[in-house]
Amino acid sequence: MDLQLIDKLGRVKEEIGRAMVGQQEVVDLTLTALLAGGHVLLEGVPGLGKTLLARTLAQVLDISYNRIQFTPDLMPSDITGTNLIRAGRDEFEFHPGPVFASLVLADEINRATPKTQSALLESMQEGRVTVFGETHDLPRPFFVIATQNPLEMEGTYPLPEAQLDRFLFKVLVPYPSLEELREIVTLTTGTSQVEIQPLMTGPEILAVNRLAREVPVAEKVLEYALKILVATHPGNALATPGVRQYVQVGASPRGIQSIILSARVTALLAGRFNVSFADIEKVSLPALRHRLFLNFEAQGSGISPDAIIAEILAGTERG
């Protein structure tokens, strides 16, 4: 029965927690995005457990997993795969690339050239890969967790705005606290190995996604989300002073889709069957922060999208 899946979700979180110390918010949001059928961009310096999280998720959800390390010399075909001639036969056979997995970790995505980046992002969007005119469907479910280093380094190619819009969430990975560090050390430098128990399957994830789409959203709650979204548009009457001053382009309709869909999953993860104002508020930041494009003034005065969204949330009335 479908509903038992929802009970499982809580256990999935617990199981991840066995391997992953702290980072509750990152784990929650990543899981939420995956169940909502969206992709996640994780931003953080190396060594904060991003790879560990992706691997653990793949184990718990019992889905295929590939990690692609993005480098400047990575070619599109290194991701999508290519046609090869099989020895002894005179026909081409498609050799699938690492993108053919249910969970793909695109590590340091901004180190590859835009051409290579867009090869991944197009397959993310369409759920299939086209090589030499032939299309090949990606497995279902299909999730991409991309990581990027927050530091603008030499030889990186920042993702273009249109590509960023394809991620459901952009999640910032913080440094662990002292306590968490202590735990991490104990956990990883000892003799014991954490064995992760597979608790769900790919089809079950798809089923949860279907259920989530049924979760009702009350009129006022939807209105609240809509108000938040239009408040990011500098020309709108609801725009806050910060938006008017610093935002060049506000969030697209994909922003509201992301908010509502992920808020539905958030409700389910909390064991609720309706979307609350709090659910909307919780997902607004990761769903919108990569969709606001700030002007030079904001960059000059060190204003972040997070500050502007916080201002919007503080100024938007519920109901």
């Binding site: 259920l211 009702p216 959203v217 009350a218 609720r272 069957f273 309706n274 609350s276 104002f277």
Partner: peptide, 20 residues
Amino acid sequence: QERVQTLVENSGGQGVILQE
């Protein structure tokens, strides 16, 4: 947490999630 208004707005509705 908006349970009551969601319920009242969907009081005639059917489906697994509404039942839940």
